[in-house]
Amino acid sequence: MDEINAFWFDCGPVNSIPPRGARTVRTPRREIAVFRTASDEFFALENKCPHKGGPLSEGIVHGRKVACPLHNWIIDLESGAATGADQGCARKFPVKIERGRIYLDMGVAAPA
């Protein structure tokens, strides 16, 4: 795992995601939603709501959460977990910001 962690994908400048917005990163195995909060924190989750697979990247970002556009499940951006009474978890991926650019852990391309 350490070896994998040493590699990061450069996904472009932070300004390419609007505050309180999200963009997607496509990989052969899955689509990743990269979120930017109002206070410029960045999170990456698999772009699939644990409920019915809705595209989380299209949801309203509020605080450190996003509301799924399909049925309004509220997903915690940090953990990927559904909040409130709902149960389920979207897979999360490490993301880091360096020198104004967004980096995704290479694990996003790994199988399973």
Binding site: G12, T24, T27
Partner: peptide, 19 residues
């Protein structure tokens, strides 16, 4: 336009940055 293009595409052969 950012709404409609992926931030990046990661493929086994080449990686294309959106911006």
């Amino acid at each position: 336009l950012h709404e409609f293009t992926p931030l990046a595409v990661i493929s086994p052969v080449a990686r294309v940055a959106a911006e």
